[in-house]
Design a protein around this nucleic acid. Structure first.
Length: 1010
RNA sequence: GCUCGAGUGGCGGAAUUGGUAGACGCGUUGGAUUCAAAAUCCAAUGUUGCAAGACGUGCGGGUUCGAUUCCCGCCUCGAGUACCA
């Protein structure tokens, strides 16, 4: 073979690696270990696009590099195969999600194999496999069997808690538990029935069942965690989310808030990602203070970060949902309060978020008592106070908080000033530095720090408050009303949840005839006929037997997507598919934690936070030897695709006029103005985004417009105009043919007019066709997704240019962490490079393989060692794009040096093998080696080949480089100066002047200041 | 609003602790080869100017012999977050 036939070469080596299990990691090795992990994919029906492999290629290069460096590398891959899309597909088609998942996995595997990754497939995991989810269920049971001891700051077993309760009650137990947990003594405990005991224990368990207000997504028919909601709508599908009370499993992640925060410091993770976790945990330091409600026994606890401003309190505000509202509202305010609560409840979360400027609230008629002055403070309710944060109530200090200030101004509540020499006539003062408190009794003339310290002491002494740290982090809801997820190993006896022990796991997902909720609103598992637990025979039996005394109903919810992905990195460590452990002690102790993890930043507050939580928990219970799962993490950027749009414009301004004219009484003139403005806004937006179209004249479908515009949503509602994000494939657009659309694109590119087209903005054309139909054609660079029809498939690239080209090109696109548009224009450059590389080894007659044993030239050695140094530095610094150019430079130089000596070409093949493993293996075998190149030691850099005797000095005048001069490197400063000053060009540039100063940095630069 | 990140040729992007701005690749132009095309190879390519030169890393200042790099003040774009008391 003389020509570079990448197809044959790549197929040959991919087969070789599979047959020889080249990349199988060893759990018993003398070599140091290194664990390189990719975030495993969800196998979607769309298959892989060129964006997916970006991170995998980077991690593969690193894994291969580490093997060359003498490490025993674990580089596994698997599938996060439980999830919503498979289920939704199942609902539509009736196919079992297991089947479509399996099909998708097969396709993913084919695509992955074509790219030449060095994965150890023998360790593959699939979260939806019963052998795998058995252990997800088991971890759930471990959490169920644990409580959090705040004194020891770790999780302990529930059995130990039972022992404590029966010997001393819960008086001294300092645990993370439900807020409504009441105190009892040891003798009380003995008196409790078993059910009562279980009820109490449930308040302590790390995974617990509780009536909680959850984010309910009616369209999806399930609850969502906070991190699954983006901009008030569901992350998947973009459906509205409402608050609803439901009995749900929750994870007591809040017990770990501080440790999750502290642990971040030691992690080698991107700072923005750490910042977002810090922000998500949201620690704030302050104090809790209790305000007594006058003429009652009620107390309102509040959290404040500024207890030093307590003498500035002039009113209280409760969240409308606050449980005390009902109890304290006076009779004459009842009606108004009720009305307000109803209106706020009706407003969706999204509206409430969008509309932060409107100040609203109602006085309850009740008053609280200032804990120090005894002053009466009116108690209001207002929706700027959130039920979900702190205690759902605030002490309002209008002089020190802008929201309190605005509220007070709006409702004419007094604004007492407690800041010395600060003017608050225009706005609140929230500064802390160099201010002193006044009008505050014993806090007068103190600084912020002094006052804070003193007031906390006073609060504690009086028994009305204490220093407190508050977290924004909420416990994570763990129940999903879905089919395609892990079943809970839980059944209900007398209403109390009971664990099914590990010997009886996995608890297999039952068969159902439909994947929808039941008619009575129960989750899909409610449709299963065989879904009850026989306590006596320890097995799943038919629901019909539930009447029997030993058969009980099983949990109908399933676990969320993040359950399986929170521990999968441990399962890979096991080299055998063991049924008796989630991962053996030996494997866990050997591999410990992930050394390098590559994946997208979208998992910052979901997967990466939950994983850390579970690992800390498993560590507490002695089940894993590490506190943190991932040492170093890199977020690869997204590869963006160019999406196209070409829509007919159905609704123009005249049609809107028509709508308005038909129902003139429906709209005021202001509203008409608003509507016209809105349509103009939409029109200007479709220039840069996709276009609106309508199926019926009253429906406008706008893509991405929602995010970009501020509109009055009620107007849209009134007009029954719907705004829904939709992408349409340009192929299906009703222009006469594809060629026409293609030509339109060309004219955008060249900025040439096309027939009756008018440019709108940078990327759009408006075309009026003969029959007066209007179309908008445009382009947009956005995230690749099937629904946007902008997906580029890696298979196409592999077929046309080969996997090595794909790998190098993806790296060459730019820095790994950066998002960049996919553009195939440059791919020929990388492909050409590989051809040149091949030629370098085939410079003999008829382009036959030609490598000699001749001694390498000095220049070639210099090129080689320069390359070794740079490539090594680049890989260690994850700067893969620059090492591709380094290879290009090396091959260009060696080609012009006509280098053909083994001394150079052998190490070069090793250098390049992490990037282009197929061609490297082929060259390696042609060089006469029988074994794979994959574990050959990385070439050693030798400084001596780079040592130069001369330096081309840049000579600059006043900092501007004018010419260069070659001088020996061993010259002293004085010698350099005299050589430079004697140069004719120096004399020319000086024009007879004497330089004021000559700066000489030996080996670097000469600068003459004149 | 707040928190991060980024602004460098026609394009993707290089540039060690401040030391020759624009590596490498794409594109473009010219040339060689070819009946022709593809492929390949050679040369040029920041702007301006015939040239010498001048100007150039978002804008305005500053520090320095010297600033894409450091400091101060702005502008623009992107990402995350959002009534967090």
């Amino acid at each position: 073979m003389s020509k570079y036939h990448f197809n044959e070469i790549e197929a040959k080596w991919q087969k070789y690696w599979a047959d020889n299990k080249t990349f199988k990691a060893d759990n018993n090795s003398e070599k140091p270990k290194y664990y390189v992990l990719d975030m495993f994919p969800y196998p979607s029906g769309a298959g892989l696009h060129v964006g997916h492999p970006l991170g995998y290629i980077a991690s593969d290069i690193y894994a291969r590099y580490k093997r060359h460096k003498g490490f025993n590398v674990l580089h596994p891959m698997g599938y996060d195969s439980f999830g919503l899309p498979a289920e939704q597909y199942a609902i539509q088609t009736g196919q079992h999600p297991a089947k479509t998942t399996e099909e998708n996995i097969i396709r993913y595997r084919e695509q992955l194999d074509k790219i030449g990754f060095s994965f150890d497939w023998s360790r593959e995991v699939r979260t939806s496999n019963p052998e795998y989810y058995k252990w997800t269920q088991w971890i759930f049971l471990q959490l169920f069997d644990s409580w959090y001891d705040i004194d020891l700051d770790k999780a302990r077993s529930i059995e130990e808690l039972r022992v404590v309760f029966s010997s001393e009650g819960n008086q001294k137990v300092n645990a993370a538990c439900d807020e409504d947990t009441e105190k009892f003594t040891a003798s009380d405990w003995k008196e409790f029935s078993e059910i009562q005991k279980q009820e109490i224990l449930l308040k302590y368990r790390l995974t617990y069942l509780a009536e909680t207000e959850v984010n309910w997504c009616p369209e999806l028919g399930t609850v969502l965690a906070n991190d699954e909601i983006v901009n008030g709508v569901s992350e998947r599908g973009g459906f509205p989310v409402v608050r609803k009370k439901m009995k749900q499993w929750s994870m007591r992640i809040t017990a770990y808030a501080q440790r999750l925060l502290d642990g971040l410091e030691k992690l080698d993770w991107p700072q923005p990602l750490k910042d977002s976790q810090t922000n998500w945990i949201g620690r704030s330091k302050g104090a809790s203070v209790e305000f007594k409600v006058q003429n009652s026994d009620f107390r309102i606890p509040v959290f404040t970060t500024r207890p030093d401003t307590i003498f500035g309190v002039s009113f209280m505000v409760l969240a409308p949902e606050h449980q005390l509202v009902e109890k304290i509202t006076t009779a004459d305010q009842k009606e108004e309060v009720q009305k307000y609560i109803e209106t706020t409840a009706k407003r969706s979360e999204r509206e409430r978020m969008a509309d932060v400027k409107t100040i609203s609230g109602v006085f309850t008629g009740a008053y609280a008592e200032h804990p120090f002055t005894g002053e009466s403070l009116p108690i209001w309710i207002g929706d700027y106070v959130l039920a979900g944060y702190g205690t759902g109530a605030v002490m309002s200090v209008p002089c020190g908080d802008q929201r309190d200030y605005d509220f007070a101004k709006h409702f004419n509540i007094p604004i007492p000033n407690i800041f010395r020499d600060v003017d608050i006539s225009e706005e609140a003062y929230s500064g802390k530095e160099n201010t002193f408190i006044t009008n505050s009794e014993f806090l007068n003339d103190l600084s912020y720090e002094q006052a804070t310290e003193k007031i906390i002491a006073a609060l504690e002494e009086k028994g009305v408050g204490e220093g407190k740290i508050n977290y924004r982090l909420r416990d994570a809801v763990f129940s999903r009303q879905r089919y395609w997820g892990e079943p809970f190993p839980i059944y209900y006896k007398d209403g109390m949840p009971q664990a099914i022990s590990v010997e009886h796991l996995p608890l297999h997902l039952p068969e159902v005839e439909k994947y929808l909720p039941t008619e009575t609103g129960e989750p899909p598992l409610g449709r299963a006929d065989v879904w009850a637990w026989d306590e006596k025979n320890l097995k799943v039996v038919s629901n019909k037997l539930i009447d029997h005394k030993t058969v009980f109903p099983l949990e109908l919810n399933t676990m969320p997507g993040w359950a399986g992905s929170s521990w999968y990195f441990f399962r890979y460590m096991e080299d055998a598919n063991r049924d008796e452990v989630f991962a053996s002690k030996e494997a866990l102790n050997y591999w410990k934690s992930v050394d390098l993890y590559i994946g997208g930043s979208e998992h910052a507050t979901g997967h990466l936070l939950y994983s850390r939580f579970w690992v800390k928990f498993l560590n507490d219970r002695g089940l894993v030897p590490v506190e943190e799962p991932i040492k170093k993490l890199i977020n690869q950027g997204m590869i963006l695709g160019e999406s196209a749009f070409a829509y007919r414009v159905y609704l123009d301004n005249s049609q809107v006029e028509e709508i308005l004219e038909k129902n003139p009484e429906d709209y005021s003139s202001d509203e008409k103005e608003d509507l016209r403005a809105l349509l103009d806004q939409i029109k200007s937006l479709y220039i840069s985004h996709s276009i609106y179209k309508s199926e019926s004249p009253k429906t406008i479908v706008v893509n991405h417009v929602k995010e970009k515009m501020s509109f009055k949503s009620d107007i849209l509602d009134r007009l029954k105009l719907k705004i829904v994000p939709v992408h349409v494939d340009v192929k299906y657009v009703n222009l006469s043919n594809e060629l026409e659309v293609f030509k339109l694109y060309q004219s955008i590119e060249s900025k040439k007019e096309f027939e009756n087209a008018v440019f709108i903005g940078e990327n759009g054309l408006e075309i009026t066709r003969d029959n007066n139909e209007k179309y908008i054609v445009g382009r947009e660079v956005e995230k690749m997704s099937k629904s946007k029809y902008n997906v580029v498939n890696p298979d196409e690239i592999c077929e046309k240019y080969g996997a090595d080209t794909l790998r190098m090109y993806e790296m060459f696109l730019g820095p790994l962490e950066q998002s960049k548009p996919w553009n195939t224009a440059g791919i020929t450059g990388v492909n050409g490079f590989l051809k040149k590389l091949w030629k370098l080894y085939h410079s003999g007659k008829n382009e036959a393989f030609f490598v000699t044993e001749n001694e390498a030239s000095k220049d070639s050695l210099k090129t080689l060692h320069k390359t070794i140094k740079k490539v090594e530095e680049d890989i260690e610094g994850f700067s893969f794009n620059t090492s591709v150019s380094t290879f290009m430079i090396a091959v260009n130089e060696l080609t012009s040096q006509k280098c053909n000596s083994r001394e150079i070409l052998e190490p070069l093949a090793i250098l390049i093998s992490p990037y282009a493993p197929h061609i490297a293996e082929e060259l390696w075998s042609k060089l006469g080696h029988a074994d794979s190149i994959s574990t050959v030691p990385f070439p050693k850099f030798e400084e001596k080949h780079l040592v130069e005797s001369n330096k081309e000095y840049p000579i600059s005048f006043n900092g501007k480089m004018r010419f260069t001069m070659e001088l020996p490197l061993d010259l002293s400063k004085d010698e350099i100066e005299s050589a430079v000053m004697a140069h004719e060009k120096t004399i020319q540039y000086l024009e007879g002047r004497t330089p004021k100063k000559v700066i000489i940095v030996p080996g670097k630069i000469v600068n003459i200041v004149g």
